[in-house]
Structure formats: C-alpha cells, structure tokens
Amino acid sequence: MERMWSTGTEPNAFAALPAGAVGRFGGWLMARTNRRQQEQVLGRAAVAEGERVLEVGHGPGVLLQLLAARTPAGEIVGVDPSAEMRAAATARNAPAVASGRIGVAEGTASATGQPDAAFDLVIAVNNVAIWPDLAAGAAELARVLRPGGRLLVSWHGGTAPTRMMRALMLPEDKLTQIAEALAGRFRSVSRLRTERCELFLAEGPR
C-alpha cells in the first residue's frame, strides 16, 4: 500500500482509505463532522451556470449533494478510491446520479480517470495530506482543468478549528509544501483561512 506524503505512514481504513465496516462508520462520522468545512469551501467556489465540477476524494458524498442543491453547476463528477465511499455517495445522491447530474467513479488525485481539460473547477476537501504523491496530484488536477480553470484544496485548520480538527492540522512546513506543489502547476496560488479550513486556491493550470 502506498504511504501518505505528509506522514510517511500507510492510510488507515477508518477515514484515510475507508474500507469494510470500520470504513463505513468512518464515512458516517465524516458526513456529520466535516459538513461545516465543506460549506465553507463551497462558499469560496463561486460556481457559475453550467460549469463542470470535479470533486476528488468525495467520501460519503455530502459536498456532491451541496453542489447539486446550491449551485448552478452543469455536471458534477466525484472520484474516490474507496468502494465504500463510492457506494455511500451514490446512495446519498441517488436521484441526481440517476438523472446524470452527478457521476461517481473510482479515482484518486494522481489518477482521476478523467479526460484532459474537462472541468472548470476541481475541489479536494480534507484529503490532500493523504495523497501518496503531492506533486503527482497537483499535476493531475492541473491536467483535467480547462485553461483558466481553478482548483480549491482544503485541509483541517482555520481560525477556529474544533478539538478534533486540531489533532489533524498540518504544521506550517507541510502547508508550505502544498502551496509550492501547486505553484509548480498553476499560474496563481493563494492561501486563506476560513473558520475551519486551511484553503488553497490555484488558478490557470500551466
């Protein structure tokens, strides 16, 4: 199993790479504890009418649901390496999946399985630290964005993190590594904090 770039350890089956009964419980917990972060990221997304949006590491599918309900996005695609999370996201969004508004597929940050220049916006919430290869993830997400497209990458933190989130926060040197990896693939990279998120906005894939 590949190791996480941020820690050098293998992803656990609870939340990093959910699998089996423990992974299903992890997904249930994530759906309840991460919603506020996902709403804050969505508030920065500025999704325009008809845009195609890709969520990488969609987990139980809460943000996919919010994108469909609260934005005028045309097509929304989610990719995740966990079969349990793909099943949970499909069940949570069953009507939108059936209609074709939302698509759910197997994929990772470094291998999304999506075509070149296919999306206007890519979002990754609470999974950048568990990617096996940070540079490969940045390159892949730049590849699937259209010219002028934008990427939102978020991790636990912000100005008022919960006690649970504080245990997951990345040190400053790791956050700097994320910014540098994105800067190697995008013309513009900015970093900001919301109440619960350390958020990176990258625009203009190279």
Rank of each mutant, 00 (worst) to 15 (best):
R3E: 09
R3Q: 15
S6W: 04
A16M: 13
A19I: 12
G20I: 05
G23E: 02
M30I: 00
A31V: 00
Q40L: 07
V41E: 03
L42E: 02
V47G: 02
E49V: 14
E49T: 11
G50Q: 08
E55T: 04
L64I: 12
Q65P: 11
Q65R: 14
L66H: 10
A68G: 07
R70T: 12
P72M: 08
G74V: 07
E75A: 15
V77Y: 08
G78D: 01
V79S: 03
V79E: 02
D80V: 05
M85K: 00
A89L: 05
N93H: 10
A94Y: 12
P95F: 07
V97R: 06
I102N: 02
V104K: 03
V104W: 01
F119D: 01
V122W: 00
V125A: 06
N126A: 02
N126Y: 05
N127Q: 10
A129K: 09
A135R: 09
A135K: 12
A138K: 00
A139G: 11
E140F: 09
L141I: 12
A142P: 12
R143T: 10
L151R: 06
W155Q: 13
W155D: 14
T159L: 15
R163V: 13
M164T: 15
E172N: 15
D173E: 14
K174Q: 14
A179W: 11
E180L: 14
L182R: 04
A183C: 12
A183V: 11
R185Q: 13
R185F: 09
S188C: 15
V189N: 03
R193Y: 06
R193G: 06
T194R: 01
R196Y: 12
F200D: 01
L201P: 04
L201T: 07
E203V: 14
R206Y: 15
R206T: 15
